[in-house]
Design a protein around this nucleic acid. Sequence first.
DNA 1: AAATCGCTCAACCGCAACGAA
DNA 2: GTTCGTTGCGGTTGAGCGATT
Length: 297
Amino acid sequence: MASIQLFTINATTSHQHSPFYCHHGFRGGRNMKAEQEETRKGPWTEQEDAVLVNFVHLFGDRRWDFIAKVSGLNRTGKSCRLRWVNYLHPGLKREKMSPQEQRLVLELHAKWGNRWSRIARKLPGRTDNEIKNYWRTHMRKKAQEKKKSMPKSLSPSSSSSSITLSSSSSTTTTTTTVDSLPFSGTGKISFYDTGGPKMAALGDKSSTDFKDEKGYYSMDDIWKDIDMSEENMIKPLSHNYSEEGCNIFCPSMASPSLDYCWDSLWKMDDEESKMFHPFSQSISCFEYGTSFFNQIG
DNA sequence: AAATCGCTCAACCGCAACGAA
DNA sequence: GTTCGTTGCGGTTGAGCGATT
């Protein structure tokens, strides 16, 4: 419906990236009509962000395919979800990772391997993507340091040296080994695919377990959580995803007042949310979002 | 000042899991 | 039980930008 009409975006916006600039070969200069029919890729514009935010406010953060369709963004549901989860979610922390967080990432990675989303659940306000990127950078640095400090005779080219992060607990001793030449491209395993311990043997715990009455985690809580997890080693791998999965709206991630609204909002049906959400009372999100397009169209 | 290098991070892809029909 | 559509996760890529040469 609206998708066709809405998608007459002028390619020149004030945003840094042209909407049709895409590092996957989706550059401008092609017939606009043809582009209207294609799914957009590449960097998001501020206008798109605004539209997406409003539609998420309207319909929640689960029905991505639906949102992608009705918003007129001409993006895939996956793309919308990713943008929301990694960038637009109000609870995201924008600042650099604290030393505690960095330590926690290393600790959890040693414990769980490349289970980025799981690790992210223990770091309120951090996304799996962010953690993944951090880890990658961290390991690269480590690899370079190691390489520098290593005598030539022991250089990785002549031996299978590695960086080792050890994490010991009462129940497990996990050693994470990362190839010191992460980008050498040798071997099947990605440089930061440490694999971690066999996940089936590890316990899991809902991230909601250590929220205080306000819903906030402290670093102590998180560490305590880790300890507890280790104490409860043998647990089914499956977990209550519906509960844990809503961590994206975990109160620890956003301002308490906003969270209250959001938390309850997501429990509502779509119709309810339409009625209750503050945005919907003044102006429909659809109108709000699409007004951007009209302005620049 | 220009060129090159290295790092960061946003965004893509493929695949697996899940749920509904 | 099977198929199909959707969602979530992990791996990877490359643009942009600051630092270095």
